[in-house]
Amino acid sequence: MRASPVLLALLLAACTDPAEPPAEPVARAGESIPFQIDGRLAFVRGADTLKTIAIEVADTDSTRARGLMQRSEIPDDTGMLFVFPAAEPQAFYMANTPRSLDIQFYAADSTLLNVAENTTPYSLDNVLSEGPAQFVVEVPAGASRRIGLVPGDRITWTLD
């Protein structure tokens, strides 16, 4: 069966979005995207700060879609803060992510809903929030347990 020129044009247009630039930075095959420090994030319980880490912020569609993909190195005491426009059920996956992560889901008031610990690198399985989450933090696997996070703990952050 032969496709008409109009159908081909529609298919090509559907595959590209000129309004959305490619996610930056881009890594070539075999290269790792460097970690960028945008600010600091504190894990808080009551009046106590449990731990403070350096964060890279993902607050646009393209940076949230990229996340920590293609990062073979994630420095200790760092993580990525995902900021969404509104609190909604969130689903993450580990495609193109070579390191196991802990994925922490936070409500609109910055309280911890749940943690998915030790996610499987390169997995396409959904990792889900247990309720509407507006903020998500990804840290190297095992960090959540070392910090001692429990539901109800909070995050605060400052940007550089």
Rank of each mutant, 00 (worst) to 15 (best):
R45Y: 13
P121V: 04
T16I: 12
L124W: 01
P34K: 10
P22Y: 11
V137Y: 09
A133K: 10
E24A: 11
G131V: 06
T111I: 03
P18N: 04
M69T: 15
V44Q: 13
E56Y: 11
D77F: 12
P34S: 14
G79E: 04
F43D: 07
G142V: 12
A14V: 05
T120G: 01
A143C: 04
G148I: 09
R45G: 11
L50Y: 09
A13G: 15
N126R: 15
L101H: 10
G67A: 03
A54K: 14
M80N: 09
A87C: 02
A42I: 03
P75E: 03
I155K: 01
P151A: 10
Q90S: 01
S32F: 10
R40S: 08
F82Y: 11
E73I: 14
D59G: 12
D102Y: 09
T60W: 01
R45I: 13
R145I: 11
A54M: 07
L101Q: 08
L81F: 10
P34F: 13
D109G: 08
R145T: 15
N114M: 10
F82H: 02
P89M: 06
E88G: 00
V136T: 15
M69V: 05
P21C: 05
V136S: 13
S129Y: 15
T60Y: 02
D38W: 10
Q134Y: 05
P89D: 04
V44T: 11
E31A: 07
I155N: 00
A47C: 04
N126W: 13
A42Q: 14
E20F: 04
A27V: 03
V139A: 08
V137Q: 04
P89G: 03
I55N: 07
L124I: 00
S32Y: 04
S123R: 02
P25T: 12
M69F: 07
V150Y: 01
M69C: 05
R66W: 00
G30N: 04
E88T: 11
I53G: 03
E24P: 00
A54I: 05
N126E: 15
E117K: 06
K51E: 14
I155A: 03
E138G: 14
F135L: 08
N126K: 15
T52A: 05
L113P: 00
D153L: 02
S100P: 08
D77A: 14
Y106G: 02
L101D: 08
R28S: 10
A86F: 09
I103T: 06
G46I: 02
E31L: 03
L112Q: 10
N118Y: 13
R40F: 02
I147D: 05
F35W: 10
E56V: 09
T49G: 08
G30M: 03
R99V: 14
E20L: 14
R45N: 14
A27C: 10
N114P: 00
I55H: 09
A91F: 05
G148E: 06
I37N: 12
P140W: 06
A65Q: 09
S144A: 15
S129E: 15
T63G: 03
G148A: 08
P25R: 07
P21T: 12
A23R: 11
S110L: 14
D61H: 04
Y106N: 04
I155E: 02
L50S: 08
T16S: 08
V127H: 14
P75F: 03
A91E: 12
E73C: 01
A29G: 06
F105G: 03
E130A: 14
S100R: 05
R154C: 02
G67S: 04
L81V: 07
T78K: 08
